[in-house]
Write a protein that binds this DNA or RNA. Structure first.
Lengths: 359, 359
DNA sequence: ATGAAAGCGCTAACAT
DNA sequence: ATGTTAGCGCTTTCAT
C-alpha cells in the first residue's frame, strides 16, 4: 500500500531521483471509491463509465494533481506518444523552421517530440548504430538528412512508421521538392543572363552516396551547364560546410583561383550569404563582379537581396508530421509521397556578366 | 513465454503499433543460458557478473539486436534518461544555438532531449497548465523563457532538478548575462556618440511581469537615458514581435511618427535586422540617418555590419545542461548560478548623429 | 557469481 | 457500469 503524499518524508537536500510518482492511479481510485480500472477508463475517455463517475474522477485527479506515469502506461500499451525527430543540425534556420512546423502538428495530435541531431560523421554514425530511438518512440521523422540506403535500412528495421523530408525512400512517407528542377531553374537563369563561367558551392555529400539532394543538385548543375554547351571546370565545384562561414571559405577559395567564375550557384542561402560576405571582404561587388544564386529563400535573403530558389520550409515539416500521424492513426504501412512546389525568386544578386567571359 | 521473432506473424499492411519489443531480456537470457537478472546486471555495468559472462551477454545482445525497453526500465527504476527542454521558439537563431549547445552536453551524458515549445500565449499557458513533462523526464531545462513567478512555481512543483537560461529563479540552476549592464553598454555607446533622441524596439513582456530580460532591458534603457539627462519619449518605446519582420514593423512605426529618433536600440539582433530592412525600404541610410544597436551578436550581424551587445549563446545552453546533469549525478537540490560575460561589439551601424538633435 | 521472486503503475480481457 | 486479475519487460532485493 502506498503512503499518501504528506507521509513521504522529503529530504531537503537531495532528490529522490528515481522515485515513483507521489500520487498514483490507486490513490485516485481509493478517494473516488472506485477501482483503478474505472479511473483509467474515465481518464482515457474510454466508454463504459457513467458521466457522473467520469466527472467525479476527472475532478479528483485534477485536485490531487494526478498524472499518469508514462512509463507504466507505455509499458502496458506499447505506445509512447513520442515521435523521434532526427535532424542534422538544429541551429540552422532551415532546420529550425522545419522542426517548428513538425512540432506544431505533432503537439496538436498529442505527441511529444524527441529531438536527435546527427550532423557530423561521428554523431551520425553513432545514431544509426545505437538507434537511441528504439523503444522510445512510436514513429520516426527524418528531416533533410539525405539518408543513405544503409541508414534508411537501419530505420526500416525498427518496424515503425517512418517519415522523411527531402527525398524519397522505400518504406518512408515523404515530402520533397524536385531538386533537379530547382537547380535547373537557378543555373539556367544564370546562363540566360549570359554567364558561362559558373561555379557551384556544393552541399556536403555523405559517404555512401545515394540519390540525395547534394548529389542531385551537383549533377543537375553539371548537366544544365552541358545542356548549354558549357564545359564545367572541376575546380569550380567547391564543397561548402553548411554554414555562413562555410560559404565564406568556399568563396575565398574560388577567389584565390587562377581563373574566376562570373557567377556562383550555392547549395543553400546560408552558403550564399557567406559567399556574399567573402566577396565584400575582397572588395568585389554583387552583381557587378559576380552573380550569386542561392537555394531555400532564407528569411534574410530578401534583405541581402539574394536571388534564390524558394521552397516552403515550415510547411514541409508540418506535412511530413501529418503523414506520419495519419499512418499512426490508420495503423497503416501504406506510405505517401507529397511533392512540393518550388519557385525561382529573382532579386538583385544576379545580373548579366560585365563582359562576356573569354576562355 | 514469449515467442521467438520468426514465429510472430507480421501483417504486411498494418503496424502492430502498441506491440512489445520483438526480443526481450528473457530471450537474451535464455540464449546465454543465464537468468534475466544476470543479463540486466551485465548490460548495465553492475558488479557481480564475471567478465566472461558479461562479455558473452554483451555480444549476444548485440547479435540479437536487443535493446532494453525504456518504458519497462523506466517503470522499474523511475529514471527516464530524458530531459525536458522548453523554449519559446525553435526557429529563431538564438534558440537553435542554445538548444544545440544543450543537446550536445545532454547527449554526451546519455540523456535524450524532449523538446517543448511554448512561444505564444496559448501554447505557453497550456504547457504550464498541463505540464506534459510530468512523468516523462528526469529534469527540466528552460531556455530563455523569461519565466513568471507563477510559471516557475508550477515547475518547482514537479520536484525535479530545474535549469534556466536567461535569469535567476529560486530552485533553478541558472546561467545568465547581466541584461542591465548589456543595455547600458549599448545605450551609453549611443549617447557617447552624441545621440539624445533614442528609441527602443522592445522584447515581448509576458503578462505577470517579473525581473526578466524584456523588463530589465526596458528599465535599464530608460534609466540610462535619465542618467544622461535625456527624458525618454513614451512613443519611442515600441514593442517588437521577436522576428525580423517584427523588427521591420516596429521601425515602420517609428518612421511614421511625427518626431523621429536618431538612434534605435533593439532588444535583439533579429529585430535590429528587421529595422535595417525597414530603413532601407524607406530610403534611409545607416548610420547616416539612423544608428542601430542590437543585442546577441547573431551570426549575420557581422555581415550586416551591426553594432551589438555580444553574448555567448551555445555556451549558455551547454553550461545550463551541465549544471543540470551535475545535479542529477549528485542527486542534489543545491542549485548553482553562473554569470556570463557580455561585450559591446562596435560595427558600422552606429555613428554620431548628423547634427546634434534640437529639442 | 548467479537465480528466484516480487514488484514498478498502468491497462485490458474477462468477469459480474 | 464497474471490479478482478493477469500481465507489460525490466530491476532489485534476498537467497544460494
Amino acid at each position: 500500500m502506498r503512503l499518501s503524499p504528506q507521509y513521504i518524508p522529503r529530504d531537503l537536500d537531495s532528490w529522490s531521483i528515481g522515485g515513483q510518482p507521489v500520487v498514483g492511479i490507486e490513490d485516485v481510485a481509493r478517494r473516488a471509491g472506485v477501482s483503478p480500472s474505472t479511473v483509467s477508463r474515465a481518464l482515457r475517455g474510454r466508454s463504459g463509465v457513467s458521466d457522473r463517475t467520469r466527472q467525479r474522477i476527472t475532478e479528483l485527479a485534477a485536485e490531487l494533481d494526478y498524472s499518469i506515469s508514462r512509463s507504466a502506461s507505455g509499458l502496458a500499451t506499447g505506445r509512447t506518444w513520442c515521435i523521434g525527430v532526427v535532424v542534422p543540425f538544429i541551429w540552422r534556420w532551415f532546420f529550425g523552421q522545419i522542426i517548428g512546423g513538425a512540432e506544431q502538428v505533432l503537439r496538436a495530435a498529442g505527441y511529444d517530440l524527441m529531438l536527435y541531431t546527427a550532423g557530423d560523421e561521428e554523431s551520425r554514425e553513432r545514431f544509426f548504430r545505437e538507434l537511441p530511438v528504439r523503444g522510445r518512440v512510436d514513429a520516426v521523422l527524418v528531416l533533410s538528412m539525405d539518408l543513405t540506403e544503409q541508414e534508411a535500412d537501419r530505420l526500416r528495421g525498427l518496424d515503425l512508421p517512418l517519415g522523411l523530408v527531402g527525398h524519397e525512400a522505400e518504406g518512408f512517407s515523404s515530402v520533397h521538392i524536385d531538386d533537379r528542377q530547382g537547380t535547373r531553374l537557378a543555373v539556367q537563369h544564370l546562363i540566360n543572363l549570359g554567364h558561362r563561367d559558373i561555379a557551384m558551392i556544393q552541399g556536403l555529400e555523405p559517404k555512401p552516396l545515394g540519390a540525395i539532394a547534394p548529389v542531385i543538385r551537383r549533377d543537375a548543375f553539371l548537366q544544365t551547364l552541358r545542356d548549354n554547351d558549357v564545359e564545367p571546370r572541376p575546380e569550380w565545384l567547391v564543397p561548402g560546410e553548411f554554414s555562413i562561414s562555410g560559404g565564406e571559405r568556399a568563396m575565398d577559395r574560388l577567389l584565390a583561383g587562377a581563373h574566376q567564375p562570373t557567377a556562383v550557384f550555392a547549395y543553400a542561402d546560408e552558403l550564399a550569404m557567406g559567399a556574399l560576405r567573402s566577396l565584400r571582404r575582397h572588395g568585389r561587388s554583387v552583381p557587378e563582379h559576380m552573380s550569386i544564386v542561392g537555394f531555400d529563400d532564407h528569411e534574410m535573403s530578401e534583405y541581402v537581396d539574394l536571388t534564390t530558389v524558394a521552397q516552403p520550409v515550415r510547411a514541409q515539416g508540418a506535412t511530413a508530421a501529418q503523414l506520419l500521424i495519419d499512418q499512426l492513426d490508420a495503423k497503416s504501412r501504406k506510405t505517401t509521397v507529397v511533392p512540393v512546389p518550388i519557385d525561382l525568386v529573382v532579386r538583385g544578386s544576379t545580373a548579366p556578366p560585365r563582359r562576356s567571359a573569354e576562355r
